[in-house]
Simulated assay, not measured.
Amino acid sequence: MEEPRKGPLAGVRVLELAGLAPGPFAGMMLADHGAQVLRIDRVEAVTDRPRRDVMDRGKRTIGLDLKSPEGVAALRRLAARADVLIEVFRPGVAERLGIGPADLHAVNERLIYGRLTGWGQEGPLASVAGHDIDYIAISGVLSRLGRAGGKPTPPVNLLGDFAGGGLMLAYGVLLALFERERTGRGRVIDAAMVDGAALLFAMFYTGIADGRWGPRGTNLLDTGAPMYDTYETADGGFLAVGPLEPKFWAEMLDRIGRVADVTDLPSRDDPAVWPLLRDRLTAIFRSRTRAEWERLFEGSDACVFPVLDVNEAVAYPHNRARETFLEIDGVPQPAPAPRLLGGERRREPGELAPATRLHDLTEWGLPEDEAAALREAGVLA
């Protein structure tokens, strides 16, 4: 039997139907905080080679042939004991397989059925293919990302897939778990990446409406302002410069003034001279190496820090002190977040891909002899 999990979600059973990154990310977040997550993959995808995907940590994996009646029946048996199911198919696919919300609520009315798609369960685009870049484009957010005069630039697939999708689904699961304590019934969660991406941009809609937030790359927080940008150093490194408040700006100039002349810098309060101010700062920061600037700004409120490579971030003193990163099976990776203080020490997530044994499925309602028969028939891997 699987060892008992610890954390605020201990005792919560989650079935995660395998899919692209946002679904596994939501499952990882739940597993990180104690949920018992069983990942359901295709039979042919389950091999003897260990998985080393960070988003599989703390989960167990089996393969089920969901195109066979036996595989569907097995999933229903598992769902009868589950608290949550994560589904990432196009709308209608789960229903055609016989594992849609109505099918599974018939065997477990307490089940929280989380559906994660790009466009949502209804609407003109619901059945159309798409990716993160498309969802954030339709949300309106992509039009606001990028340098002034340049084309819209997506922040890899963080905004739609992970923040607008996986994170929102995990949030929806927690809402539904909380509500179920009062109602005794599950919910269907319709988590659409286009909805999530739009919501993440909520802060800026007032400024857009009243004209204070202009085209991309011209505003205070989108690299329009020289006091909120990145600058190259003499050795090809970069600094993140963000002293927005006047007192932090003064602190930055005081530190820079120890090694360079800043007495005639253009005013930061006049957007008309921002290009000139940016040029001057560019020249100043290129005059020394990143390490030299790090030493100069160390311990200050200047809001100037190095732009770290991912591998550098793992070893950065603050991150090491906070244990922001950890290593599992030789793979450095972010630690679970957020931290819940005041109780036990933050728990460590499980292995990246712990082995699944037949008897592990008995507590999910699938006896070992039946699981063995399904494996022999090629329905279960």
Rank of each mutant, 00 (worst) to 15 (best):
G7E: 05
L9A: 11
L9F: 15
G11V: 01
F25N: 03
L30K: 03
V37G: 13
V43D: 14
A45N: 12
A45L: 12
D48W: 05
R52G: 12
M55T: 08
G63C: 09
L64C: 08
S68E: 12
A73Q: 07
A73V: 00
R77N: 02
A82Y: 04
L85Y: 04
R90V: 02
R90K: 10
A94F: 00
E95I: 01
R96Y: 06
D103W: 01
A106Y: 06
A106C: 06
A106W: 09
E109H: 10
E109M: 03
Y113H: 09
G118L: 09
G120M: 08
E122Q: 09
D134H: 14
S139Y: 11
L142Y: 04
G146N: 08
P155G: 14
N157S: 13
L159M: 13
F162E: 10
R180L: 09
R180T: 06
R180A: 14
I189Q: 04
V194H: 11
F204C: 05
Y205T: 15
G207L: 14
G207S: 08
G217N: 09
Y228D: 12
D229I: 03
Y231R: 08
T233Y: 00
D235I: 01
L239S: 01
A240Q: 07
F248H: 09
M252P: 03
L253T: 08
L253Q: 14
I256A: 10
I256V: 15
G257E: 01
R258S: 09
A283R: 04
S287I: 00
T289C: 15
R290Y: 06
R290I: 01
E292W: 08
F297A: 10
V304P: 14
E312Y: 04
A321V: 10
D329Y: 04
G330H: 08
V331P: 11
Q333P: 12
P336R: 00
G343C: 12
G350M: 07
A353F: 15
A353K: 03
R357Q: 13
E363P: 13
L366S: 06
E370F: 09
L374P: 06
